[in-house]
């Protein structure tokens, strides 16, 4: 039992399968099986132990559709996408444009901007929570000095959401900036030289040369950031836990509370299935938009 290869060397045919076996087994057990199970569990009314589960069919999904807290969390998540993603990407575009060249100062700025990424959401959450704390917070104190009154950043419906979005941008804009710098450095220098000869301003060069050249990277970033915004959990959990009055409760935060605070595993699974469908539809829509954008 020997297979031959184009170079005539011999190896046992099961070798390639043996090499991928560990990851395939693990991916099956811990990725594919749970995805499959979520469709089944979502049809039951079941707690943690699953001992007295009751079959509901599509009952959980019917409840989802009439669950105002689900719709609230979906609205919060959509708002996150609409606010956080453009803020983050515009800032990253601006900074990447200014930091493309590999000078020493630029490298220093890049190193600083990347720093929050390596810190845990827990640590940065604690940090911002205390800086903006209504009693001990330094920023709260500065705002009072400026005569803006005592602002309760972490507990004001309507404001707190934007505070959390700010924290998220603060923590992650370095990723987008780094990726965009990578893309901008790959744009051919001769394009800019030609533009310089034509006395084309740097501003125009950015819009007519840089932006079109980095379009694929930009699409990649938009897609990952939009999908990422449907997975927001850490920063909310470590700062507000979804409050005040559910104004920062994202979809994943809500799923977490259904599963691990009130232990409704079936209902939480139904919500997870909805999340999966939403993410898939969003991915397909953005993919289609990207293909159309490329054809133009």
């Amino acid at each position: 039992m020997y297979a031959t290869r184009n170079n005539g060397r011999l190896y046992k045919p099961y070798i390639p399968y043996l090499f991928i076996a560990p990851v395939i087994l693990l991916l099956f057990l811990f990725n594919l099986l749970p995805t499959f199970i979520s469709f089944i569990v979502s049809q039951f009314d079941a707690d943690l132990t699953f001992s007295n589960g009751v079959y509901l069919g599509l009952g959980n999904f019917n409840e989802v559709l009439h669950d105002s807290r689900f719709w609230n969390s979906l609205a919060v998540t959509a708002k996150w996408t609409v606010v956080e993603v453009p803020c983050q990407l515009l800032l990253a575009l601006l900074l990447a444009g200014l930091l493309t060249k590999n000078t020493l100062t630029n490298k220093l700025f890049r190193a600083v901007y990347f720093m929050p990424i390596i810190c845990s959401a827990t640590a940065t959450g604690i940090m911002w929570k205390l800086i903006l704390h209504s009693n001990v917070g330094y920023v709260t104190y500065l705002f009072r000095l400026m005569g803006l009154g005592k602002i309760n950043f972490m507990n004001t419906p309507g404001l707190t959401f934007y505070v959390i979005v700010f924290m998220s941008v603060w923590k992650t804009f370095g990723i987008s900036t780094t990726i965009l710098i990578g893309a901008m450095q790959n744009v051919s220098v001769s394009l800019y030289e030609a533009a310089d000869i034509d006395a084309c301003s740097k501003f125009k060069q950015f819009f007519y040369i840089t932006l079109p050249s980095i379009k694929p990277t930009l699409w990649f970033l938009i897609m990952t950031r939009v999908i990422g915004s449907f997975q927001v959990f850490d920063i909310v959990y470590t700062t507000t836990g979804g409050g005040p009055s559910l104004s920062t409760e994202t979809l994943v935060t809500y799923i977490y509370t259904r599963g691990f605070e009130v232990f409704r595993m079936g209902y939480a699974s139904a919500l997870s299935v909805c999340l999966l469908l939403i993410v898939l539809v969003m991915t397909l829509i953005m993919y289609a938009m990207m293909l159309r954008g490329e054809r133009e």
């Binding site: 395939i24 811990f30 569990v41 997975q231 599963g259 595993m265 699974s269």
Partner: peptide, 27 residues
């Protein structure tokens, strides 16, 4: 090979947050 590789890539499309509840049950 290609089928298995596509399966591997497909798992990348499923966010962890979607499978966390059933994964917890499995574990």
């Amino acid at each position: 090979r290609s089928v298995l590789f596509i399966v591997v890539l497909a798992t990348m499309m499923i966010p962890f947050q979607v499978t966390m509840i059933p994964l917890f049950l499995v574990v």
